[in-house]
Design a protein around this nucleic acid. Structure first.
Lengths: 146, 146
DNA sequence: GTGCTTGCAAACAGTTTGCAGATAG
DNA sequence: CTATCTGCAAACTGTTTGCAAGCAC
């Protein structure tokens, strides 16, 4: 069984366990999220799903994403001037690498040291609940294109 | 001369140098930005300015902030579900500490090691242009309040 | 059969924009 | 004087919401 398949089953059984219904529309969102390595937006998910199942609305995609977010199974990356992007595979804080040209989002192989979180907590007295680290740059493909 | 005063003069002379006019409305925005230690939103700036100078519109506040951003004199922190916040004193990337209750934003005394940026650049092949690091938590004052 | 879920369309909110009148230099 | 700036109000955009009809269980 592939990672994507087991992730999909995890998501599906979690919905069932929490007494949410497994509609075809929801399954389509779950499947795409489990398969995606990039970080799709609601609109990108909608476009793909709607092409296959024309009986799917934007509202349902948004509602499903928010449901998964509340269940802690999806990481939402919000942007002020751009669509929100969703990570259905690693729903916990981790760094992202964002191409400012093509808007591709990758996961770089670095992490915030636990030291740093403790340091901030101690210095500030804040109770730290989460964090977000984004790197902005130009991806190799976009560098070639001028 | 205080830091805020010299910062204000810097901003004012920069506008003049770039052939932008120093209107009273702009000066009010500049002054507040130079004085602010928290990270005000456009609306917060507007409220304060409009109280003193009723002849000031939201649009002008937004336009002035965007002008300063283009000149590289203000750091804009955008949020998907909240107002943008502005830092007129340190207009370069640095970490922020955000209280999820009262929405106060502070600067913690930590920084991203240059090592980390280089590491990401080398691993990924991206040309890194900037970054953003936000810590989310509950500030000491809000912890007391339950 | 019951009540959760869907699709539609309208609402929402912060920000941006077009334009006519005002004003800094 | 004149080009830039202001204030107003409408437009914009991604997301959310209310509601009647549909369907999972």
């Amino acid at each position: 069984m592939t990672d994507a398949q087991s992730r999909l089953e995890h998501l599906a059984s979690l919905l069932r366990k929490n007494e949410h219904r497994l509609t075809p529309q929801r399954m389509a969102v779950l499947r795409l999220l489990a398969l995606s390595v990039d970080h799709p937006s609601a609109s990108q998910l909608y476009d793909q799903i709607h092409a296959q199942f024309p009986t799917t609305s934007r509202a349902t995609v948004y509602k499903t994403l928010n449901l998964l977010k509340e269940l802690g199974e999806v990481l939402e990356l919000g942007f002020a001037d751009d669509d929100k992007r969703y990570d259905g595979n690693k729903p916990y804080p981790h760094p992202h690498l964002i191409c400012v040209r093509c808007r591709k989002i990758m996961d770089p192989a670095v992490s915030i040291a636990a030291d740093m979180l403790q340091q901030v907590a101690q210095q500030s007295g804040y109770q730290i609940l989460g964090h977000r680290l984004d790197f902005y740059g130009v991806c190799p493909e976009c560098q070639e294109g001028g």
